[in-house]
Amino acid sequence: MAKTQFKIWRGDKEGGDFEDYTTEVTEGMVVLDAVHQIQAESANDLAVRWNCKAGKCGSCSAEINGRPRLMCMTRLSDFPLDEGVAIEPMRTFKIEKDLVTDVSWNYKVKEKIPKFSPRPADNADGTWKIDSVDTDRVQEFRKCVECYLCQDVCHVLREHDLHDEFIGPRFLVHIAGLDMHPIDIETRTKQLKEEYGIGYCNITKCCTTVCPENIKITDNAIIPLKERVADDFYDPIKKLMKIFKK
C-alpha cells in the first residue's frame, strides 16, 4: 500500500481545526493504527482514547469521514484511500482535546438509575434458577461496551442538546437490561416517563445503525420500554384497577 492523507481534528474547547498528516498504510490496518502511527511519528501529543484495540472496551469512539465508529474496528480498506480519511471527535460531547471528549455526563446519568434489585434467592445456597431462554434476551443488552456512539448520533442529544431531559439510547438499553433481567424486581417505568424522557425518542433508529455490537437498540430495547410505559400509565383497565386498589 502507500502513503495516505489523514485529516485529524486538533484542538480543545477553545476551538480547533483539521490538520493534515501523511502516513504509510499497510495491509489490514485499522483507523486506530494510523492514528497511533501518526502519534508516534509526528504528533506525540495527539490526544486519543483507546484500550483493548479489539472492540471490547468501547474507548476509541470517533467520527470517521462523518460516521460515528470505533477506530479499532474500522479497517482502512473500507475507504477509497486516495480521497483521504477525516477523523474527528464525537460531536455530541464537549471537547477535552483533539479526539478526546468529555463523556462524564454518561457516568452521572447511570448513577441515578435505580440499581439492579434481585428477588430473594430461589435456593438455600443463595442462588437462583434461571432458564436459558430468559437470559438470551437480556444478554443482548449486556453486550454493550459503553462506547456512547449511540448517544453521539442521537438527534435528541446531538441537535437538540436535551441532556437534562433525555438519558439517551445507551441508558435505555441499560434499563432494558435491568427491567427484563429475569430476577430483577424493581420497576423503572415511572422514571422512564417522567425523568428519563423516553417520549423524546421517535424511533429513527440511528442508534441501532451505529452500534458496534449490533444491539437492536430501538426494536429490542426502546420500543418494549415504551410499551411498558404505555401499559403502566395509559392502559385504561390498569388505571381502573389502580383506582379500585386504592
Binding site: 502519534q39 506525540n44 501529543d45 495527539l46 490526544a47 486519543v48 482535546k97
Partner: peptide, 8 residues
C-alpha cells in the same frame, strides 16, 4: 506539547 491530555 503541554500538560493537557498529552499521551507523549
Amino acid at each position: 506539547g503541554n500538560r493537557q491530555y498529552n499521551p507523549g
